[in-house]
Amino acid sequence: MQRYILSRLIQSFIMLVGVLFIVFFMLQLTGDPVALMVSRNASPEQVEELREELGFNRPVMVQFADFVSKAVRGDFGMSLRHHQPAMELILERLPATVELASMALLFAMVVGIPLGLLGGSNPGSIWDTLARGAGLIGQTIPNFWLALILIMVFAVGLGWFPSFGRETRQFMGLALPTKSVILPAFALGLFTMGQLVRFTRSAVLEIKNEDFVRTAYSKGLADRRIYIKHILRNAAIPLISILGVQFGYLLSGSIYIETIFSWPGLGNLLAESIGNRDFALVQAIAFFTSLVVVSLNLTADIAYGMADPRIRYGE
């Protein structure tokens, strides 16, 4: 198990170095950020002066080395647009994104896993039809389209929910979610819900036919016990890694949803900073998101190892 964790740690580290590399050089290809920052009729001398001030006139490799050495200390420089440290901006926006992603994942799990279990355990039944339908719809409806429809029907039409923005309720120093999160979380979580339904259903269908399930029946156990202790317990192992990947996707992939609902999260910030060619901020967000995804995958891998005794007690 220790060797297993160690090898995952090393993999994650290599991945992050690769991410830093890509993030830095991709942005170099998009054009000169200084051109955006100065007014149209600035003289070439003025532009050059600004380039020098911001360090963009140095060789690319030097800029990269500088970037990495600061990045490992959490310093991604100042946002060119906001004139605030990039990391500070990210941490400001983080709670909103975490709230949205957690609610989306919660919705996906609460609906997806039981529906997949019901469908997989009674193939061909009404539950199965429902599960397959939910899986298909969840995975095929584009979330930006769904978001617009939701706003039209539930915010504008029925007026049940706000159409944009985030409101929180203070409780013992915590900012608790209010109903403002419901529409964006639903729109964001639907795809993950579809994934979970389909995955749980097929895992249950497969495990149902395993020999050890027949053994469980031959022991005269109650159906409920067989499904929870024998079938779901085995399906949970691969499910853990899916959940890790999906949570990473939810935390990072909400640009559309956050923009449509004006949700003050990371995705919104990223969209804005790309439009502004806000170098430091884009780099910081990209790296931060990768860090989140990589550490979630790492957590999922370790949890996977803990849940599967064949790995836990392996070499």
């Binding site: 317990r233 192992i237 599967d308 005794p309």
Partner: peptide, 16 residues
């Protein structure tokens, strides 16, 4: 009535 199956590795739950 008890049952003994052929391949005990696959007939026993691997995670219990």
């Amino acid at each position: 009535i008890g049952f003994i199956f052929q391949d005990a590795l696959s007939a026993l739950n691997p995670v219990m």
